[in-house]
Amino acid sequence: MKFRSLLVWAFVPTLFFSCNQVENSTGDHPIFEDTPSGFLEKQYEFPYPDQHYHWYELGRKLFYDPVLSLDSTISCASCHKIDLAFSDDSDLSKGIQGKLGRRNSPPLFNLSYSPSYMRDGGIIHLETMPIAPISDSLEMGITMAQVNLKLNSHAYYRSRFSELTGKDTITDRDLLLALAAFQSKLNSFNSAFDSIQTGKQTWRNESQRLGFEVFKIKCSSCHSLPLFTDHTFAFNGYFVSDQGRALVTQKPEDINRFKVPSLRNISLSAPYMTDGSLGDLDAVLTHYQSLANKEIVNLDPRLKSMSLSNEEVFQLKEFLTTLTDYRLTRNPYYSKPDYPFKK
């Protein structure tokens, strides 16, 4: 992995420079990235664009800091790992005291383009999203009031937030803004597929190209471009013991419906499905193949005529590898901040 280490080292001087000389930080920081053409309208914009860099760096530090959990053992990054496109390789992630969560950790990227969060879409704003994992007894297990106390007794965070807000104390909103400043910039639109689309690169083999053709016909009505999800809620025929979208709407027809996940970085975010019960893409595609012979009540109509040959499955898998974005997983600006920790 010589290329990888070279890439990382190339960024390091810039990183240190940016931390100390903020006003001069260069345009390669994620906060300066523009929405690529063809992407949807943003659902979230950080409210203080002039201060975004500072809030981002604070949010990034907090994302990797277990201070946000009751016993200071679990950080956001414990279940959202950068090299897995901010997902987890466990079916269910462990929270405090080894407690298992209820659902598979979803990957985190392109969040500012999403109209809702969580697999059932129950959360409707990026800023209020972290309240759920922070206060869930199975995850970080701490009340927002307790987090406030912890942060306000933390000299480093207190002084950093104070510089930004002009206030003596840190509020919930300050914490949530910082996390939103960081998470809203976890962008992923630099995969091989994106380069192929813009003509900077070509398909590595014919199977990839044919896989894209299969995808367009058989997958793209739910996993629509450019985000590879249309953000709708659908029952894909795979039963899990989870009410899904019905937990939010209380409508019986929404039982078992979940948000269509993006296929970007799909090769990194195994295991799959809401409960993480399918270990690899072969198992997922085998499930979709199996739909052809079954009559399943409430199956999403877009899946009713689904049929996939083994050849098509092979091609799809080849195509899906092109959706991995190493600018997400190896971006030093997204990684755990490694500058000296000030107390």
Binding site: G122, I123, T128, M144
Partner: peptide, 13 residues
């Protein structure tokens, strides 16, 4: 309206 008042549904906003 601060969430620390514990008057906010976190999983179903």
């Amino acid at each position: 309206l601060s969430p620390s008042n514990d008057m906010f549904w976190s999983w179903n906003s």
